[in-house]
Every structure is written in C-alpha cells, then in structure tokens.
Amino acid sequence: MKKLIVILFMTYGTIAFSQKDACVCCSDAYHSFDFWVGTWTVTDSNGNLVGKNTIEKVEGGCALRERWISSNGKSTGTSLNFYNGENEQWEQLWIDNSGGHLKLSGNRKGNQMILSSEGKSTPEDQIVKNRITWTLNDNGTVRQQWEVLEEGQVVTVLFDGLYHKIE
C-alpha cells in the first residue's frame, strides 16, 4: 500500500507541480530583453556592415541565445542571456572563437538594457569594468555600445553598432 501511495504521489504530484509552474518565465522581467530577439545585420557607426547576429528565445522562453558572425566570417561568438530571479538581474555569458569570454549582469532601464562586468583591478590599482548597453530606438533598430570604464569613467568604446532587423 505504501508503494502505491508513493507511486500515485510521484505521478500526480509531478503533474500538478509541472502544471502549476508551467510558465515560470512569463513575468515582465523575463520579457524585458525581448526587443533584441530576431535576426539582424549589424553596421558600425560609419554604416559599414560588420556582421550578422541572431538572437532567439530558448529553454521555453527562459533565456536568449545569441549567435554572432562577423562580416568576414572570421570572428564568431555566442552568448546565453537569462533573467536570474534570485538576484533580480539579467545575466550574460559571452564566449567567442578567440577564447575570449565575458560575464555581465544588470537590468533594463527605460528603452535600454545595461549589463556590466564586475570590476577588476589593474596593476595601477584602477578598477576596470566592461559595460554594454543595448538601446531600442523608435524605428525598431537597436544600438549596442560596449564601453570600458576605469573608476566609473568611460575610457574606451570597444564597439558601437547598429542592429537592423531582417527577420
């Protein structure tokens, strides 16, 4: 009899649990980066084509996967982006074909998603961070700007691209 009760609980308890939590990633916070979803051509600040990027919702809408390829096909990269409900922030892990990686976190503010890395000390005891901002423009394009900050001040812009949706 105990086995029957355990089996019934495991069967119906699992069904009830999965139905109850069927849409754990449906709150507004999980959709705040949806403006980046799509297939895009990306141009630099001079209008030159620099690559193509595809961002898709994955894992039942709980994450975004990015697939980047430069216009010459030599540079590729992938990121996984997700809303972490525990710390109430978006997180990104970027990995590219040169062995580079970057971990970012942050949130949407107005029409911008702003993600930053943790600070690292330089040999000169300066604190350096990466900050990437995606801005949803009124015409549907998205501007991505990657800045390097020292002691909170922008010292370099590593990338300034404009995304044009093709799908």
Rank of each mutant, 00 (worst) to 15 (best):
R65Q: 11
E147T: 06
V148D: 04
I166S: 03
W146S: 10
V58R: 13
R143L: 09
V42P: 02
V148S: 04
A16C: 04
C26Y: 09
G110R: 10
N46V: 06
Q92S: 09
T141D: 12
W134D: 05
N84S: 06
F9C: 04
L80H: 06
H31W: 14
F35P: 02
T14K: 04
K52W: 06
V37D: 04
W90V: 03
K57T: 05
P123D: 15
I114F: 09
V128W: 00
D138H: 12
Q126I: 01
S98F: 09
S32A: 15
S79P: 02
D96S: 13
Y30F: 04
G119S: 03
W36N: 06
A16T: 05
Q92K: 08
S27L: 14
S116Y: 07
D160E: 15
S32G: 12
D160T: 15
F159H: 15
T78A: 11
K74R: 08
I15A: 11
H164F: 04
W68G: 01
T78H: 11
N72Y: 09
K52I: 05
Y30A: 01
W36Y: 12
T76Q: 02
N137C: 06
S75A: 14
S45P: 10
T41P: 04
I114M: 14
V154N: 05
G38K: 03
G38F: 03
T14N: 06
P123L: 10
N48V: 08
N107E: 13
Y30L: 01
N87S: 12
G13N: 02
K120R: 15
F9N: 05
N130A: 13
H164P: 00
F9D: 06
Q145M: 11
L49K: 15
R108A: 14
R108E: 09
F9M: 08
G110I: 08
L115C: 05
T78K: 14
K2S: 12
I114V: 15
W68E: 00
L64Q: 00
